[in-house]
Computed example of a mutant assay.
Amino acid sequence: MRDVDLRRLHLLVELSRLGSMRAVADTHGLTTSTVSQQVAALAREVGTSLVEPDGRRVRLTPAGRRLADHAVTILAAADAARVDLDPAAEPAGTLRVGGFSTGIRTSLLPVVAELERTHPAVEVLISEYEPAEALALLAEDDLDLALTYDHNLAPVALPPTMSASPLWTAAWSLAVPAAPDLPDASVGFARWADRDWIVNSRNTADEDVLRTLGALAGFTPRVRHRIDSLELVEDLVLAGQGLALLPAASRPRAGVSLLELRDPPVLLTAYAVTRLGRERWSPLRLLLDRLAAQDAGPQDAP
C-alpha cells in the first residue's frame, strides 16, 4: 500500500458516516465530483475498490468499511500528534530528563515540584548521568533534555544537532588538608607539583582542568585516585592521599580546606541541552522556560 493522504481518509470516514457522496460534499463545501475523485484516488493508493454501486448511490465495499474503521484510529492519532507537537498547545506529555546530580538537585527538582502543581499533565522522568553519557543518550533520542556542564578551561563542543542554554556558573577551588597559614592557591600552583591528585571516576572534565592548570604551572599532575563520591574525595584529601578540585560553594568536612583558584579561575557552567528543534515542543518549552527563570546556583559538586 502506498502512502495514504489523510484528507482522503477523512472523506472516506465521512462517507461511511453520512452514507452518500452528496452529503459529504454538502458538509464540507465540495462538489460531489470532487468527493468522488478523492475517494477514487484513495482506492488507487490502497490498491483495492472502496465503493460499489447501490442503485443511484454508492456504498462502501467490505474493504472500504475496514479501511474506514482503521481511518478513525489513524485520524485520531494524527490529531493527537498535532496537538502534542503544537507549540501553542497546553503542555502535556512525558519528559525524559537525564543529567548530573547537582543539576538535577539544584535546577530540576524545584521545577518538577512546581509543574506537579501547575501542569499535572506534564510528567518528568529523571535519570542521573555524567555529561558525556547524557549527551550520547540525547543524540539517540533516548532523552528529551540533558543537564550537562563544562569548565572554562575544558569547554565541550556540541554537535550542530544540539542546542544548549546556560543555566548557572559556579567557581571551583583546590581542596587540601587543613593547616595553619595555607597560601592562596593562585600563588604559584606549581607549589603543588609533587602532590598526588584525585579526579572523577566517571567524567574527565575535572582531570582536563587539572592538567591544564598543571601545564600552565609547568608540571604534569600525578593522578592516583579516581573517585565519584564527593564524600569519599574529601575522605582521601583528609587522609593525605591527594588533592582535588571541588566546588567553591561546597561545605567540606572539618580538616579539609578550599583554596581559591584565581590565576586562572576555574568556572563550571551548567547547561540545559536539547536536540535542535525539539525545544518548540510545548512541555519541553515549559520546562526550559522554568529552568531559565531560576536564579539558583549549585550547593555541592556534580
Rank of each mutant, 00 (worst) to 15 (best):
P265L: 01
V122R: 00
P53M: 08
L60T: 11
G277K: 08
L236F: 15
A292S: 06
P298Y: 05
R56F: 08
F100Q: 12
L15N: 04
W168L: 11
L246C: 02
A121P: 04
L182G: 00
V256F: 01
D150N: 11
S173E: 04
W197L: 07
E90S: 13
V256D: 09
L85C: 13
S201G: 12
V4H: 04
A80H: 03
L267T: 13
D150M: 06
E140C: 01
L167G: 03
S250C: 08
S49G: 15
D144F: 00
T118E: 13
L291G: 01
D206K: 09
P87W: 06
T73M: 11
L145D: 04
F219Q: 05
T48E: 11
V187D: 15
P183L: 00
A301Y: 15
V256C: 02
L258E: 02
V39M: 09
V97F: 08
T27H: 12
L243E: 03
A296R: 15
E260V: 08
E128D: 08
S282K: 00
A293H: 07
A178E: 15
D181H: 12
A63F: 14
L143V: 02
L216C: 07
L287V: 02
D5F: 05
T148K: 10
T204M: 01
A175P: 08
M162L: 12
T61G: 05
D69S: 14
E130Q: 12
T204D: 13
A89K: 10
E14M: 09
G218F: 00
Q294P: 04
P221Y: 06
T102H: 13
P302K: 10
S257Q: 12
P155H: 01
L276A: 12
L6M: 04
V223S: 02
R290N: 06
S127Y: 09
A134T: 09
L115E: 07
W168F: 14
M162K: 01
W172C: 00
A146Y: 01
L50V: 09
V223P: 09
R96A: 06
A76G: 11
R44A: 15
R2F: 08
H10S: 14
D79Y: 02
S186C: 00
L268C: 07
V97G: 00
G99Y: 14
L135V: 10
E133F: 10
P120L: 04
L268F: 03
P180H: 04
T148V: 04
P110G: 06
V199C: 10
L238D: 13
H119Q: 13
P160C: 06
G297Q: 12
A270C: 08
P166Y: 07
D84C: 03
N203A: 13
A296D: 11
V111D: 01
A185S: 02
V97N: 01
A272N: 06
N152T: 14
Y129P: 12
S229M: 08
S16N: 12
S49K: 15
L95A: 11
R262P: 09
S282A: 10
G188P: 02
H28I: 01
F189A: 03
A139T: 15
S16E: 13
P87C: 05
L268K: 11
W168P: 00
E52N: 07
P302V: 14
E231G: 15
V237A: 05
